[in-house]
Design a protein around this nucleic acid. Structure first.
Lengths: 207, 207, 207, 207
DNA sequence: CATGAATGAGGGTTCATTCAT
DNA sequence: GATGAATGAACCCTCATTCAT
């Protein structure tokens, strides 16, 4: 049983992703969620706080798995990075709708809470990558110690641009929009591609 | 002497970049451009057509240099790619304001003309990269023939994410917001970084 | 032990006085009374009926003392008038919060029951003053028989305007807002002032 | 020719007087003024600023005549006071609609500009009365020097309460609502009554 | 007897655009 | 060609009240 509150949240997520936050009206959300328009204010306070709630929910979800990975002592640094990429790729694909919103909002949104969510999330990832890279370099697992900002930008940039560009690439390759086998293959290839680029950046060679 | 029309165009570009298209009102644009509100409809037809005009103007500008490079017979394929990256990096930095809009609009905009501009632009680049890669591979200058979609996504993703993330990276490195020396160095490093990643993807080794 | 119903009534009275009936929301009342919003409709039927109840309560209270005074055979007419003024002055000061509401509502309220409350109350006072003035005139205690409407308007007008204007007068006299000694003295003086004006209007001279 | 702006202002004044500021909707005002609803924001910025404008307009009007009177060297102090009362009575009757609003708003309104308008106006009157009373007392025209606050409260209280109470008094005297002869006589009597009360307060006797 | 989630109407305001001048 | 007053639709939100529990 899905609650009205969640109904609103998910309906809003979809619409924000498709049309952007500003272009989505509370009326549309209420219609899509099949609830009265006043429920948005009732549950969330305002349209903007609904967006905040959405960010809070989705970003808390994402924060959990990374801690789990870096705490796992059975994995070496490359395995950790590799696993993070696996999870991240998977997650971005699953949560495409939300990451669409995220990308838009981080470019124009001036909401303080959302800015803080995003910044803290990114700074957290930077720190993790920083530590893993240093550790790998000190243990001579990695031969290079890359600029962590550029490594982060490369990883995330590839991920998001690849996701966003997929429909256009399908068109370039003359693949039907509905061909989901292509998608599966594409994301698999993307995952390997990202890891290959990272290996090169880190100077890591699999035995 | 700058015309009223251009005044509006540039004022709108700045505001769209800062606040997003939807959140920018025609009143704000007219105030910033120091013209009457009705001039926007008068010159451009509507707010949306103003955005179209902006895209048209900026994207036509970008299309010109690439043809020039690939037509230059004095350059080998890697030099061409290298030059494209140089120009692109420079351009994205210079036109940061516009590329901010571009990134937002390509995620949510449903305007047909703008979608077409963007798609054609990207398909054009894809074709160029495709041809250069094939040529380099055939001429054994490159050892690998990478997935062109992933190469494109990597190149563009790195570029945009690195640009957007700069303020956050400065914070991570405890660098003052106003430190433009850092910026200069950052973009220089970014340029080299992009080329290094491309070299690896293409299996290109400098003599 | 104060009941929830009374809690609401007194919280509403305070808020109506401070902000006016219209600007006070049921949410605010419920918050101030520490009860659920629906209790207002539950106990009183509606926000408007809550106001009616408030008027009913306060005006019934005020009606009682006047009958007591005019029935007292030990007092002569002037003593009766003097006592009414004493009680009225005291009551208006004590019930300042309610009389604030009363003044506002009699100017704009269209609620029939409230209009009737107010009208009956005033007509009752008019009748009392009328009878006392006539009796005093016939018994030659008063030398004049003033227009009873103007006498009523003068008495009430002085009272309410003096009450409302107090903060401003304090400012004029450079007296601190918190100086309650000034207030005590002010209301004492007001009481004497009202009686003096009445004496003049009635042509009454103390032995 | 009456402008749209004035149309709105006067329509709003009437409605505010009848129903109170809060209970009057912008839609009603626009309907009454026969203009589009958005014109209120267009001309005045907001409903509240419309009220401010109304106060500004009416109170500036009232400030002018008093200066004229006190500057007139041909009049002695009593004649000045008498003339102020004449004008004030006349004005309150003419501007009944506005003074209704004024009375309501000074009890509940929290708008700073309006509070300031009202306070300054009253402090101005207090000062004028203060000076005239002192002058009259020093010149032995008046035998008494009354508490200026109480004098002010008495004058204004009588005026407003008499105006507000008129319909009720007519009912008490069994006079038809539509009998305007009664009104004329009533206000004439009120004017004399006020002056008589003031004479008593000031200890002034006409030769 | 009491609750609080849910309602629908209406609130004030802002929007992009039009049109008479 | 250029203006700015004026428009009506749509915006988000808050309101008093209801009703299932």
């Amino acid at each position: 049983m899905i609650s009205k509150e969640e109904n609103i949240l998910f309906a809003a997520e979809k619409l924000f992703s498709e049309k952007g936050f500003e272009k989505t009206s509370t009326r549309e959300i209420s219609r899509a969620a099949n609830v009265n328009i006043s429920m948005i204010s009732y549950y969330f306070g305002s349209k903007e706080k609904l967006l905040e709630k959405l960010f809070e929910m989705r970003m808390v979800e994402s924060q959990s798995y990374i801690q789990e990975i870096i705490a796992n002592e059975k994995l070496n640094v490359w395995e950790k990075i590799s696993l993070i990429v696996d999870r991240y790729t998977k997650r971005v694909r699953q949560m495409k709708v939300f990451y669409n919103i995220l990308q838009t909002e981080q470019l124009t949104n001036k909401n303080e809470r959302i800015i803080t969510f995003l910044k803290n999330s990114k700074l957290g990832y930077l720190k993790v990558y920083d530590e893993l890279c240093r550790e790998g370099f000190e243990k001579k697992i990695f031969k290079k110690l890359p600029n962590i900002a550029l490594l982060h930008a490369t990883l995330n940039g590839m991920m998001f641009y690849a996701m966003n560009g997929l429909p256009m690439y399908k068109e370039y390759f003359n693949v039907s929009k509905d061909n989901s086998d292509f998608d599966d293959h594409y994301f698999e290839e993307l995952n390997l591609h990202i890891k290959q680029v990272l290996k090169n950046l880190l100077g890591y060679e699999e035995n």
